[in-house]
Design a binder for these strands. Structure first.
Lengths: 195, 195
DNA sequence: ATAAACAGAATGAACGTTCATTCTGTTGGG
DNA sequence: CCCAACAGAATGAACGTTCATTCTGTTTAT
C-alpha cells in the first residue's frame, strides 16, 4: 500500500464511521481498525483527531465544489442559475449520503460554528458563487431584498432538511420531486409579482 | 429545597450546559455542580444520563406547545394560521435560545433520529396541528401538492436556519424581519398563481 | 430511632495519545 | 551480485485522563 493509499484509507474509514456514528462514536482505535492500520499510524498522517476531522472536511469540500459547478453557466438568467446550483447540491447530497451526514455532523459541532463564523465574517472563498448569485438576484430585483444570511436560509434550509429526510428514508426523492422542491425554494426567495 | 425544586435545578443545569457545550461537554459531575447537588443525587431522579436527556426533551416540548398555540385560531384562513404558527415558533426560539440549542443538539443526535422516526411513522401527537394545517392547505389547493415531509422542510428548514443564525449573532432578527422571513416561507409552500 | 435522601469519594470502562520496538525497503562497500 | 547497515514507517501495548455510575458514610425529616 502506497503512502497516499494509506492516508486515503484512514480518511475513508473516518468518514464512514463519523458519518454513521458521530464524532464520539468513532474512536481512533476503531478508525485505525477499519482503515487496516495500527492506531499509532494515524498520528504519522494527522497530528491529532481534531486535525483529522478538519482535514477530512476540507477533502469533502474540494471533492464537492467541482461536481456542483459542473455545467454551471454564470451568464444564464438568475433563476436558471439558482435551479442549477440547488439541484446539483441536492443531487450530490443524495448520491453521497456519507458526505452529507459528515458535513451535517461537522456543521453542528464547535468546529462548524467556528468555520461558519470565519466564512461569514472573513469571506472565505468557495461559497462565493452562491454569494454572487444572491447579490445579482437582489440587484436585478429578481429576489427579495433580504439579508444574505436569510436568503441562504430560505434557499438551503429546506434543501438540507429534505436531503436528511431522504437519507433517513422518510421520503424518496425522484427527479421530479427534486425539481419541484428546488423550484419551491426559488418561490421562497424570489420577489412575488403582484397578481 | 423541596423535591421538585431539586429535580427542577438538575434539569435547568443540564439544559444550560448541554445547550452551550453539547452532550459531551456536559459531564454529570458538572451538571451536579451547577445544580448545587451531589453527583449521586441526580441518580435519585433519573436512572441514567440518557433518561435525563430524554426527560429534558419532553419537558421542553411541553413548555413550548402552549406558548406556540397561544392565540391560534383553527378557523382562520390557512395563510394566517401558517403565519401565526411560524412566527410564534421563530419568536419562541429567539426568546429561548437555550431551548433552541438543546432541541438542535437533540435532533442531531441518535436520540433525535429515533424520536423523529417514531413521530413520522407512528404519528405521535403534538405536531398534529402542523399536519392538519398542511393537509388543509393541500386539500384547499392553497399549498403545493407535495409530500408532507417536503412541505415541513420548506416551512421549517429556513426557520431553524435563521433562528440559529440569530442566536449565533450572524443576523439580528427584529419584528419586521421575522414577519418577512415567515412570509417568504409561505411563498415557498403556497401554490403560485399564474401571472 | 429509623429510614429515606443526600454528598462526594471510589470505581472501572473508554478514550486519545505516546513511545519503545519491529518491520521494510534502500543504500553502499566488498 | 550480495548482504550488512541504516532510515524511517508502522505498530500496538501502556499511560494518563475523563467520564458515568456505584458505594459509603452522613444528614435530615418524621
Amino acid at each position: 500500500m502506497s503512502i497516499n493509499d494509506k492516508r486515503e484509507e484512514i480518511v475513508r474509514a473516518a468518514l464512514e464511521l463519523i458519518a454513521e456514528n458521530g464524532f464520539h462514536g468513532a474512536p481512533m482505535a476503531m478508525i485505525a481498525d477499519k482503515a487496516g492500520v495500527g492506531a499509532g499510524t494515524i498520528y504519522r498522517y494527522f497530528e491529532n483527531k481534531d486535525v483529522l476531522i478538519v482535514e477530512l472536511y476540507k477533502d469533502l469540500e474540494e471533492r464537492m465544489y467541482p461536481v456542483i459547478l459542473d455545467g454551471y453557466a454564470p451568464d444564464e438568467p438568475t433563476r436558471e442559475r439558482f435551479l442549477h446550483l440547488g439541484t446539483a447540491l441536492l443531487r450530490y447530497f443524495i448520491e453521497n449520503p456519507l458526505d452529507f451526514r459528515y458535513l451535517e455532523q461537522f456543521h453542528n459541532s464547535p468546529y462548524g460554528v467556528e468555520h461558519r463564523r470565519d466564512k461569514i465574517l472573513g469571506k472565505k472563498e468557495g461559497i462565493n458563487v452562491f454569494c454572487e448569485l444572491f447579490e445579482d438576484g437582489i440587484s436585478q430585483q429578481m429576489m427579495k431584498d433580504l439579508p444574505l444570511v436569510i436568503l441562504f436560509a430560505l434557499a438551503f434550509g429546506p434543501l438540507l432538511s429534505v436531503a436528511r429526510d431522504h437519507i433517513l428514508g422518510f421520503v424518496i426523492l425522484d427527479d421530479l420531486l427534486i425539481t419541484r422542491t428546488i423550484e419551491a425554494c426559488w418561490d421562497g426567495i424570489k420577489r412575488q409579482s403582484v397578481c
